[in-house]
C-alpha cells in the first residue's frame, strides 16, 4: 500500500445470470481494518444488494470465510494491511462450493460430507450408566483435543486441490472430525467411522499436499488427522483379513 492512498482498490465478485464478474469499489482506508470491515462498508455505503455471510466477527463462528487475493481466509480476523497487494484486494466466494449469491456460498455439500464421514457422535451409554472417566493425558484424548478446535469455516475445504479434482472427496474438515470421534473414548462407532472414511472419496483420496494445514486459521493440521485415519484403515485392512 502506498502511504498517499486514501482508498483501497477492492474487486468484489458479483454473481449474475451468466455466472458473475468482479466489480470494482473504492473503499476508504481505516486503521486496523479487516476484510470483513471492507465488505461491510461496501454493503452499507455503496451497494445494499451485496450478499455475504458473517455472525460473530471474532473468529469463533466460521461464517465469514472468503477468498482474499486468491487465498481462503477468515475475513473477520484478516487485517487488510497483512494481505494487501499493491493497494488491491480481490474478494471472492469460497472455492470448491456452489455460490448462492455474490460472496455467500452454499455450505450444504461441506456439511453433508461431515455426515457422510460419520462425523457424528455415536453414543455408547444410556443415561443410567455412570459417566465414563477420561484421562486427559492419554494419546487418544490428546489427538481428539487438537482436532476439536475446528470452527467449521470450510477454509481447508476451499484450499484443498483434492476437493477440486475429486467431487466425492470428503475433504479435510470432515475427515478431521471423523478422526476426533475415532479417538473419543465415548464414541462407539470406531468401525463405522473407518468404513465411512475407507469408501471411495474417503481419506485415501488425500495426497498430503498440506494446503489444509497451511490455510487453517486455527492452525490445525487436518492432513495429520487424515494420515491417522490412513494408518488406522490400513491396520483394520489387515486385521479383518486375519480374523
Amino acid at each position: 500500500m502506498t502511504s498517499t492512498a486514501k482508498t483501497l482498490d477492492v474487486s468484489v465478485w458479483r454473481s449474475n445470470d451468466t455466472g458473475g464478474a468482479f466489480q470494482a469499489f473504492a473503499v476508504p482506508i481505516q486503521e486496523s481494518q479487516t476484510i470483513l470491515d471492507v465488505v461491510a462498508w461496501i454493503q452499507q455505503n455503496e451497494d445494499p444488494t451485496l450478499a455475504y455471510r458473517f455472525a460473530c466477527r471474532v473468529g469463533m463462528c466460521g461464517s465469514c470465510a472468503m477468498m482474499v487475493n486468491g487465498k481462503p481466509r477468515w475475513t473477520c480476523r484478516t487485517h487488510v494491511q497483512k494481505v494487501i497487494s499493491g493497494n488491491k484486494i480481490e474478494i471472492a466466494p469460497l472455492r470448491n462450493l456452489p455460490v448462492i449469491k455474490d460472496l455467500a456460498t452454499d455450505m450444504d455439500p461441506f456439511f453433508d460430507k461431515w455426515v457422510k464421514a460419520e462425523g457424528v457422535f455415536h453414543p455408547s451409554k444410556t443415561r443410567d450408566d455412570a459417566i465414563e472417566q477420561i484421562d486427559p493425558t492419554s494419546h487418544e484424548r490428546t489427538e481428539a483435543d487438537i482436532g476439536i478446535e475446528c470452527i467449521n469455516c470450510s477454509i481447508c475445504y476451499a484450499a484443498c486441490d483434492a476437493v477440486s479434482t475429486t467431487e466425492d472427496y470428503l475433504g479435510p474438515a470432515a475427515l478431521n472430525r471423523a478422526w476426533t470421534l475415532f479417538n473419543d473414548a465415548k464414541d462407539s462407532g470406531k468401525q463405522t467411522i473407518l468404513d465411512a472414511v475407507s469408501a471411495n472419496g474417503g481419506c485415501h483420496s488425500c495426497h498430503s499436499m498440506g494446503s489444509c494445514a497451511e490455510a487453517c486459521p486455527n492452525e490445525l493440521n487436518p492432513m495429520a488427522s487424515i494420515a491417522g485415519l490412513k494408518r488406522e484403515t490400513a491396520k483394520a485392512f489387515f486385521a479383518r483379513r486375519k480374523s
Binding site: S198, A199, N200, G202, S205, A234
Partner: peptide, 12 residues
C-alpha cells in the same frame, strides 16, 4: 475396486 484396495495395493 475400492479406493482402500487400490491404496493398499499401491503401498504394498
Amino acid at each position: 475396486m475400492t479406493d482402500l484396495w487400490l491404496y493398499m495395493a499401491q503401498r504394498i
